[in-house]
């Protein structure tokens, strides 16, 4: 990523022309997207699987008839500025769950049902046909109501969940802040958990040892570090989890509504830390219900609804659209 590009990414408001987005599916967004699309811009989000090939800019193969002129414009600025590397590419992603109508988890029940041919499953697609890509340094907000598939998407990117169909390519190291302290052992002390959780995130032992004091200091746990985690308050646990996870400078940071960690003081501290990381060009994925949070942190956003990507583009516009969507729901 070039230097200017980085700067502009940090302050998207001052450089609207830099914001790069494109979306083709959702008809209701088509208008706004067209304007966004005609900018300098590397393609960040292609909604249709057919379009979502990495070389979309090169071939100019943007789907849809009305957009041909845009390709001309797109080619020119590309020579001037090399777009940032794609770090996450998702193509035609689908995740299916088999929801058994009744949970069968005992052998006896299983065989009885097998004999009676009563093993019924209800298919449920948590995500379907989701295609988009994220470039280095992007801060992408993922908006959507409960059950829209936001967390499923993050889990797939974090590697916890496998896609049923489609491909997901993640090119850099991911640090998921999904649920802070999920890897803690409750009988272990805070100090021991630093090593355990750190090694779960793939850190080396020597590295953890080196950073140990820094982690303890940042978490503000003091003498409590030698107390078993089961005696911690949830705030303390989250503070420790946050301190361990953010001790490296990750290349991709996944935030699932964790910005409300600890008390007001720590909240401020963690927000500062995140801001510092973002300045260093880290790629951020943020899940949120609140559009103002997305506005303040992200430069791009997507909306998920019932497992489908319905809009993607510049954070401001997508947030507006999201608010509209919610208001419409309220009226109904």
């Amino acid at each position: 990523m070039t230097e200017e590009n980085k700067l502009e990414n940090i302050i998207p408001e001052s450089a609207p022309a830099e914001v790069t987005a494109e979306s083709n599916t959702a008809p209701e967004t088509a208008d706004t997207e067209a304007t966004v699309e005609s900018q300098t811009a590397p393609v960040t989000a292609d909604v249709q699987p057919t379009v979502g090939v990495p070389e979309a800019e090169e071939t100019g193969a943007t789907e849809g008839t009305g957009e041909k002129p845009a390709t001309e414009e797109k080619k020119k600025p590309k020579k001037k500025k090399k777009p940032a590397k794609k770090v996450i590419e998702i193509e035609g992603l689908g995740v299916r769950f088999n929801m058994a109508e009744q949970k069968v988890d005992s052998l006896k029940e299983y065989f009885i049902r097998l004999v009676h041919r009563n093993l019924k499953y209800k298919e449920f697609w948590a995500l379907k046909d989701v295609t988009f890509s994220i470039r280095k340094g992007d801060r992408v907000g993922i908006l959507g109501l409960n059950g829209a598939g936001k967390s499923t998407l993050l889990k797939v990117i974090a590697g916890v969940l496998k896609a049923t169909e489609g491909t997901v390519t993640v090119k850099e190291s991911v640090v998921p802040l999904l649920e802070l302290g999920a890897g803690f052992d409750k009988d272990y002390t805070g100090a021991e958990n630093i090593y355990l959780y750190g090694s779960m995130l793939g850190y080396k032992r020597d590295f953890i040892r080196e950073k140990f004091d820094e982690i303890v200091k940042f978490s503000e746990l003091g003498d409590f570090i030698n107390v078993p985690v089961k005696n911690y308050s949830s705030g303390m646990r989250a503070r420790l989890g946050f301190s361990i996870a953010t001790i490296v400078d990750p290349q991709i940071l996944i935030l699932d509504e964790v910005l409300s960690v600890g008390d007001a003081k720590f909240k401020k501290k963690s927000a500062n830390k995140l801001k510092k990381m973002m300045k260093s060009g880290v790629t951020v994925l943020l899940v949120s219900h609140q559009s103002d949070q997305v506005r303040s942190i992200c430069n791009k956003a997507i909306i998920l609804e019932h497992g489908r990507l319905i809009a993607s583009g510049k954070a401001e516009e997508i947030c507006d659209q999201y608010e509209e969507m919610i208001n419409k729901d309220k009226q109904n």
Binding site: Y188, E192, Y195, S199
Partner: peptide
């Protein structure tokens, strides 16, 4: 090899907690 430290930590944890 990336996660061999984790293996070490998990073994240590099992043994440590067993007799804690």
């Amino acid at each position: 090899s990336k996660f061999r430290y984790l293996l070490y930590e998990l073994i240590k944890k099992d043994i440590k907690l067993k007799y804690r």
